Measured scan of single mutants.
Amino acid sequence: MSIQHFRVALIPFFAAFCLPVFAHPETLVKVKDAEDQLGARVGYIELDLNSGKILESFRPEERFPMMSTFKVLLCGAVLSRVDAGQEQLGRRIHYSQNDLVEYSPVTEKHLTDGMTVRELCSAAITMSDNTAANLLLTTIGGPKELTAFLHNMGDHVTRLDRWEPELNEAIPNDERDTTMPAAMATTLRKLLTGELLTLASRQQLIDWMEADKVAGPLLRSALPAGWFIADKSGAGERGSRGIIAALGPDGKPSRIVVIYTTGSQATMDERNRQIAEIGASLIKHW
């Protein structure tokens, strides 16, 4: 067993022997301040990774656009098919120029040779490549099948209805392509620590998230040296922004954090800054 596999296998073990965790309302004060600064709703939840206990939450059962955070769930569904012998990570998928959609920095470079399922998941999570996500959605049967996968996990809230990039439209009061912070946090925890996926697939999923290259201005910008984070960000229309993450000190994750916002007129930089400040408060009061 590799060191990384050992780390993920012992996530519940280490967490069980940690000192009790206590909620700190100071972080919620910052979440509410972010709402004021952005002029928009902000949803927040913080779960203990081992027990699933909610440590703090704000608007945990209000719907927010998922945006690209759905790509972690998508690759979880792909990995479940791999575990069941219905898919192979090494299978190569070929596609054409007509398949390319807006923001496809990886797939646009491989029109000639195609990409493997493993490479597509890596591109979808680490670079948020939209064509990679659409190609992977095709392998599982489309958005409705991802929703069905989530329902089978016990998540009857999260739903995907459309493809990239239309799913980022974020129309107010439109339930399409949305989740709730509580539902997303619980589902992410199941994917990373539950028995739904094999140990190898859980490790692969967290490795992809740990290698995320496009979430630097968010929670990662607030992390002290030595902290662990595996995350996936999302951005959408109407001032929408979000991030889902597993993080913790001492090089291992111990909490799940989900943050979503929508309806702001603020710039992307300002949305990023507010999420980073929430992260800084979380870490300060850990």
Rank of each mutant, 00 (worst) to 15 (best):
S2E: 05
I3W: 07
I3K: 14
Q4D: 08
F6E: 06
R7E: 08
R7D: 07
L10F: 09
P12C: 13
P12S: 12
F13P: 07
F13S: 08
F13T: 12
A15M: 15
A15K: 04
A15N: 06
A15T: 15
A15F: 15
A15D: 02
A16D: 03
A16K: 06
F17S: 08
F17R: 05
F17G: 09
F17N: 08
C18S: 11
L19C: 15
L19V: 15
P20M: 04
P20E: 12
V21A: 15
F22D: 07
F22C: 14
H24Y: 09
H24G: 14
T27H: 05
T27D: 04
L28H: 12
V29C: 12
V29A: 14
V29T: 12
K30C: 15
K32I: 11
K32E: 10
A34T: 10
E35K: 03
E35D: 05
D36R: 15
D36Q: 04
L38M: 11
L38G: 07
L38T: 09
G39W: 08
A40P: 03
R41F: 08
R41V: 09
R41P: 10
Y44T: 02
I45W: 02
I45F: 14
L47N: 03
D48P: 02
L49F: 14
L49S: 07
N50E: 14
N50H: 12
S51V: 06
G52Y: 05
K53W: 10
I54M: 11
E56W: 05
F58D: 02
R59S: 05
R59D: 02
P60Y: 09
P60T: 12
E61L: 12
E62I: 06
E62L: 07
E62D: 10
R63G: 04
R63W: 04
F64E: 01
M66F: 09
M67Y: 02
M67K: 02
M67G: 13
M67H: 07
F70R: 02
F70G: 07
F70A: 10
L74H: 01
C75D: 02
C75R: 00
G76Y: 05
A77Q: 14
A77K: 10
V78D: 01
L79S: 03
L79N: 02
S80R: 11
S80I: 10
R81E: 07
D83A: 05
A84E: 12
A84L: 13
A84P: 03
A84C: 11
G85R: 10
Q86M: 11
E87K: 03
E87G: 05
E87V: 09
Q88C: 10
L89C: 05
L89T: 06
G90M: 13
G90D: 14
G90S: 13
Y95M: 07
S96V: 11
S96D: 12
Q97M: 15
Q97S: 14
Q97K: 14
Q97G: 13
N98P: 09
N98V: 12
D99E: 14
D99V: 09
D99Y: 07
L100D: 02
V101D: 12
E102N: 10
S104E: 01
V106L: 14
T107K: 01
E108A: 09
H110Q: 09
H110G: 08
L111R: 08
G114Q: 04
M115C: 07
T116F: 04
T116Y: 05
T116R: 06
E119S: 08
E119I: 01
C121S: 05
S122M: 15
S122W: 11
A123D: 02
A123L: 03
A124P: 00
A124F: 00
I125Q: 02
M127F: 11
S128I: 00
S128R: 00
S128A: 00
D129S: 01
N130F: 00
T131S: 12
L135R: 04
L135E: 06
L137N: 04
L137A: 06
T138Y: 12
T138H: 15
T139R: 10
T139S: 12
T139A: 15
G141L: 04
P143A: 07
P143T: 07
P143C: 06
P143L: 04
K144P: 11
K144M: 12
L146G: 03
T147S: 11
F149H: 07
L150M: 11
H151F: 10
H151G: 13
N152A: 14
M153G: 08
M153E: 08
M153R: 07
D155T: 01
H156Q: 13
V157G: 09
T158A: 05
T158C: 03
R159E: 06
D161N: 08
R162A: 07
P165A: 07
L167E: 03
N168I: 05
N168W: 03
N168F: 03
E169S: 14
E169G: 14
A170S: 13
A170D: 08
I171P: 08
I171E: 15
P172Q: 12
P172V: 12
N173R: 14
D174C: 06
E175V: 15
E175R: 12
R176G: 06
D177I: 01
T178W: 01
T179E: 00
M180C: 14
M180H: 14
P181M: 02
A182H: 12
M184H: 02
A185C: 07
A185E: 00
T186I: 15
T187W: 04
T187K: 01
L188T: 09
L188V: 12
R189D: 08
T193S: 15
T193M: 14
T193P: 01
G194W: 08
L196R: 15
L196Q: 15
L196F: 13
L197T: 05
T198S: 13
L199A: 12
A200F: 09
A200V: 11
S201A: 10
Q204L: 14
I206T: 13
I206F: 13
D207V: 11
D207S: 15
W208G: 02
M209W: 03
E210K: 11
A211K: 12
D212F: 02
D212T: 06
K213A: 15
V214G: 06
V214R: 07
G216P: 05
G216E: 07
G216T: 10
P217I: 06
P217R: 09
P217S: 10
L218I: 05
L219F: 09
L219P: 04
S221L: 10
S221W: 09
L223K: 07
L223P: 02
P224C: 05
P224H: 06
A225M: 15
G226H: 11
W227Q: 01
I229L: 07
A230P: 00
A230L: 05
A230H: 01
D231Y: 04
K232M: 00
S233A: 08
S233N: 01
A235T: 06
A235H: 02
A235L: 06
G236T: 05
G236R: 01
E237G: 15
R238V: 09
S240A: 13
R241I: 03
R241T: 05
G242I: 00
G242V: 01
G242K: 00
I243V: 11
I244Q: 01
A245M: 04
A246H: 04
L247M: 15
G248N: 03
G251K: 14
K252W: 09
K252T: 11
S254Q: 15
R255K: 12
R255S: 03
I256W: 01
I256V: 11
I259V: 13
T261E: 06
T261K: 03
T262G: 05
T262R: 08
G263A: 08
S264T: 12
S264I: 04
S264G: 10
S264E: 04
A266C: 14
M268K: 06
M268H: 09
D269M: 11
D269P: 09
D269H: 13
D269S: 13
E270Y: 08
E270A: 12
N272T: 08
N272E: 06
I275W: 02
I275R: 00
A276L: 08
A276I: 07
A276V: 10
I278D: 00
G279T: 07
A280G: 12
A280M: 15
S281T: 14
L282Y: 03
L282P: 00
I283K: 05
H285A: 09
